[in-house]
Amino acid sequence: MRSKTTPMAEAVAAIGDGASVMIGGFGVPGTPFCLIEELARQGAKELTIIKNDANEAGMGVDLLLQNRQVARLITSHIGLNANAIRLMNAGEIEVELVSQGILAERIRAGGAGLVGIVTDIGLGTPLAKGKTMLSLAGREAIFEPALTADFALLHAERADDFGNLSYAATARNFNPLMAMAASCSLAETETLVGQGQMIPEAVHTPGVFVDHVMELAELPEVYHVVRR
């Protein structure tokens, strides 16, 4: 099968102004910090970012926020990033807050080629406001549209050059869902191996969902244990 190894700068250069970008990670584990830094360096603007959380001030997606590259953020929690809260309150970015499992399921639905999901989560809360309500078999429910994106930025522990990926411990989180939901998925990996070097049963994301894969020469400090 074909090799999808691509230099990071070349792969990220395809992300233009106005693109929608899903970014894996929950806290530090699974966040593709090097891909985010490259996106910050290249500077595409007016981005829609879809990410579970806004990281912490000074790291990860916060670099894009500080650079004013983000027009819209779809997320479940930004409470650990005072900078993101300030930008939201100042009206400088539009923030759509989504219940965490519903965010995951909307992305999964996008990746599964579905139109959306129907759920009772959030009934009677501010999250139901303005949404399409359905009544099915006497049960009230909310229609939540599927989420897809132009690009996904992913972090794998191990990959082969076809793009088969596996993730470490809690670094899996949103990565496999986003790999499926994006039109073009970019995966940075800690270890890159040749085809045949991954155990097929241990592949978490099939390479068919991955368009570009790149090995990190080293893991910068930001990936390591944080002392608070």
Partner: peptide
């Protein structure tokens, strides 16, 4: 205070 719901609602 509006940091987002995280998983609390579910």
């Amino acid at each position: 205070f509006s940091p987002g719901p995280g998983g609390a609602i579910e």
